[in-house]
């Protein structure tokens, strides 16, 4: 799908969430779902397999998000999957997240960690990233076991990498 179309979907979803007054919640849930789709091939296939009936794919979405995400988020995702755009859902979620951050004069800070961060750690990390980049950040925590340990933060074009995975890769390169 073209960037304009992805941008169009993201803008429409943002405006719906804004109209419903749940922008932050929708943005956060969509972002989390997008990362889950990226990392889970089975889920990605279930949502993007066009050989499956639309109703079947939408049922998967409702079973997946029902009770775990807001109604608006579930309906928006169901709409995207029903439109046959499930493959572009991560890109749409990213656009929506950037748009929401931009509207609140913040920058998306994607942080990958192998373990969950406490709210207090998230706050301190957000403050530290704001201090380091000079920008207000919209923190997005992604649990990624591949990093092994530590954190890697991506704010715009800036990447701050403190993961064990990267250290191991550097060690392997030196070896």
């Amino acid at each position: 799908m073209s960037d304009a179309r992805i941008d169009g979907y993201a803008r429409a979803m943002y405006e719906i969430a804004q109209a419903e007054g749940v922008v932050n919640e929708v943005e956060k849930e969509l972002y989390t779902l997008a990362r889950a789709i990226e990392s889970n091939e089975q889920l990605r296939n279930a949502l993007t397999d066009e050989s499956l009936p639309v109703e079947r794919r939408q049922t998967v979405v409702e079973q997946l998000l029902g009770g775990k995400a807001s109604t608006v988020t579930t309906q928006l995702v169901s709409f995207i999957v029903g439109s046959g755009r499930g493959r572009e859902l991560p890109a749409i979620a990213d656009k929506l997240s950037k748009r929401a951050s931009s509207e609140s004069h913040r920058e998306v800070a994607e942080v990958r960690s192998s373990v969950a961060l406490t709210p207090e750690q998230q706050q301190r990390l957000s403050d530290a990233l704001t201090k380091a980049t000079g920008k207000q950040v919209n923190l997005k925590i992604i649990i990624d076991p591949l990093v092994l340990g530590g954190l890697v933060a991506t704010v715009g074009d800036t990447v701050i990498d403190g993961t064990v995975r990267t250290r191991l890769d550097q060690l392997k390169s030196r070896l």
Binding site: Q121, L125, L129, K131, G149, G150, L151, A153, I160, V164
Partner: peptide, 29 residues
């Protein structure tokens, strides 16, 4: 090395790594 490191990364080590990262990023500027 990866196996040894992975097996040695217990919860306290993970937290220490996170805290160390936050401290370093906060002190970067």
């Amino acid at each position: 090395t990866e196996r040894v490191v992975s097996s040695s990364l217990d919860a306290s080590t993970q937290q220490a790594l996170i805290e160390n990262f936050i401290s370093n990023v906060g002190a970067a500027r």
